[in-house]
């Protein structure tokens, strides 16, 4: 992960035309290149509204959002899409083509990639999303998990450096969710900045390195995953239940400092090392 900020959000306010209250209120964030961030919060807390500012789908009512040096207020989404990929919650909202090939190559064609460039990007992303050999398949006949991966592939083919995925695991079983998140993690390890919004705290604890909690249009917590999940009071206020492993760690080892997110095996090791349980 680089120290270079890739997204800067400064005093961001956003209000929908049809509502009186702000959907996002005084949000300040700095996201560095290569981070893996999860934005969590109740429905209606402002998660999706916030991330829609990153590729200019929403323009700030007040404040500003700088993405890779570009003020999003001054650039249309079609331009920002070159470096911010945004995958929607429902893959069926974007699928329209007759074949997987056409679906994936739609974005790169809009950007103006050459035929050779599109072909190599297509091969690469279909391989990464485990859809190789399905180029001529009809997208609507794929399974929900495959359609979700196709949606990610069609964004990845545009080679964005930032990937925003809104609720990536909705409607998927645990195996599919882990598989998809594993693919996203792989992209993150290759240098993509990955931002997800989700309600699945177990996935957050496994994959995200930084967590941002939103409550009533504001960012109320922002920090390393292990620190955020130990802030029980604020999480409770935001109606978020941390993964059981953190609740247990908080009860059994309240004073221990965690320098990385923990999984059940890590907690078992910590408990053994602390002499609380025997091997």
């Amino acid at each position: 992960m680089s120290e270079e900020p890739i997204i800067k959000v400064e005093h961001l306010y956003y209000k929908y035309e049809t509502r009186d209250q702000f959907a996002v209120e005084d949000v300040n964030l700095t996201i560095k290149k290569g981070e893996f961030i999860a934005i969590i919060g109740q429905n209606g807390s402002g998660k999706t509204t916030l991330v829609k500012h990153f590729n200019g789908l929403h323009k700030p009512t007040r404040g500003r959002v700088i993405v890779d040096g570009h003020n999003t207020a001054d650039h249309p989404t079609s331009e920002l899409a070159r470096f911010v990929g945004y995958v929607f919650q429902n893959p069926d909202h974007q699928i329209f083509a007759d074949s997987v090939r056409d679906e994936v190559s739609f974005g790169p064609k809009n950007i103006g990639f050459t035929e050779e460039h599109i072909e190599s990007a297509l091969k690469l992303v279909l391989g990464e999303m485990e859809l190789s050999g399905m180029e001529e398949e009809q997208p609507f006949q794929l399974s929900r998990g495959q359609r979700q991966r196709l949606a990610v592939a069609s964004i990845l083919a545009m080679e964005p450096s930032i990937l925003v995925i809104d609720e990536p695991t909705t409607g998927q079983d645990w195996r599919e969710s882990i598989a998809l998140m594993g693919l996203v993690q792989g992209l993150n390890e290759k240098g993509h900045t990955c931002i997800i919004t989700t309600h699945n705290m177990n996935l957050v604890s496994i994959f995200a390195r930084r967590v941002i909690v939103m409550r009533q249009a504001k960012v109320t917590l922002d920090g390393p995953t292990q620190d955020v999940f130990r802030n029980v009071e604020e999480l409770r206020a935001a109606w978020i239940k941390p993964p059981d492993v953190y609740t247990l760690a908080q009860k059994l080892l309240p004073d221990i400092h965690l320098d990385k997110p923990i999984l059940p095996q890590d907690l078992a090791d910590l408990l053994i090392n602390a002499g609380i349980v025997g091997r």
Binding site: L57, P76, A81, I111
Partner: peptide, 18 residues
């Protein structure tokens, strides 16, 4: 709502609708 989501998803793939 669906219409706006779909339009946004196309814009996110660099489709210049305007």
């Amino acid at each position: 709502g669906d219409y706006f989501n779909i339009i946004e998803s196309f814009k996110s793939r660099a489709m210049d609708m305007d």
